[in-house]
């Protein structure tokens, strides 16, 4: 088996004395879309922060391309080309759409700036229409698109997405997930996706993990998880989109 792009080994993360992650193991291979589903408060965002160094693991290891990044500062991890669209999108509200994209490209020294912006505009045509607009005045869906596009501007090897569907209309969710699918297919972009919207996430991804109370309780190919009666009962029934 080839070396995974990202490995989370037995990670334990604490907020003070409260343990939010207990012994989490996750692997993401190059070119895969992997999702992590779980209820609100399960520890999904905590895992994201642990991977990108914002809330480092107290024990266990995070490996990226085989290198230990467990205690690296966030900005250095980002420079390894792990880009993320964090929880809450965190776009730069007072800056224009173009300026936001420019901030995303700051690692690339602006060399491919124009070319990459055009790619983003093809991926999300709504952003092109609004390129001169202040990002804070965008709709929720457009802000999410901008957040993803800004992350992509760094030409990432791994894209981390924390609940991109949160608070969006089903049609917009569909557009965004379709864009991720296209990206993965055409550029072999590796994506690690965290979602409460289990149905949409499992449909999009190749493999999935289920997290409950800071522990991974199940994992496997997304198709199997989708068919699993336990998961259907816990995450899918009544919540169809």
């Amino acid at each position: 088996m080839t070396q995974p792009l990202l490995q989370v080994e037995n990670a334990e993360t604490y907020y003070g004395n409260i343990r939010a992650l207990s012994g989490v193991d996750i692997e993401v291979q190059k070119g895969e879309i992997v999702c992590l589903i779980g209820a609100n408060g399960a520890g999904k965002s905590t895992l994201m922060m642990t991977i990108c160094g914002a809330q480092p693991a107290r024990s266990g290891r995070i490996l990226f391309e085989g290198n230990d990044i467990t205690r690296m500062p966030t900005h250095l991890i980002a420079r390894l080309r792990i880009a993320q669209s964090p929880e809450g999108r965190r776009i730069f509200q007072r800056m224009t759409v173009t300026e936001n994209l420019q901030m995303g490209a700051s690692l690339d020294n602006q060399a491919h700036f124009k070319e990459d912006v055009e790619k983003m505009f093809t991926l999300f045509p709504r952003l092109k229409e609004r390129q001169h607009q202040r990002a804070g005045t965008l709709s929720g869906g457009e802000q999410q698109m901008l957040s993803i596009a800004r992350a992509l501007m760094a030409r990432p090897k791994l894209l981390l997405l924390d609940e991109p569907s949160l608070g969006l209309a089903p049609l917009i969710i569909k557009q965004i997930f379709e864009a991720i699918r296209v990206l993965n297919k055409e550029t072999a972009l590796t994506v690690f996706l965290v979602e409460q919207n289990a149905f949409a996430a499992l449909k999009l991804s190749h493999r999935g993990y289920v997290m409950v109370n800071g522990k991974v309780t199940m994992s496997g190919p997304s198709k199997e998880l989708l068919a699993n009666p336990e998961i259907r009962a816990a995450y899918l029934e009544g919540g169809h989109h």
């Binding site: 900005h75 776009i91 509200q93 800004r150």
Partner: peptide, 12 residues
């Protein structure tokens, strides 16, 4: 000024 956390995640 806009968002410190986002800055870090962009490698700043």
């Amino acid at each position: 000024r806009e968002d410190e956390i986002a800055c870090r995640s962009l490698g700043i």
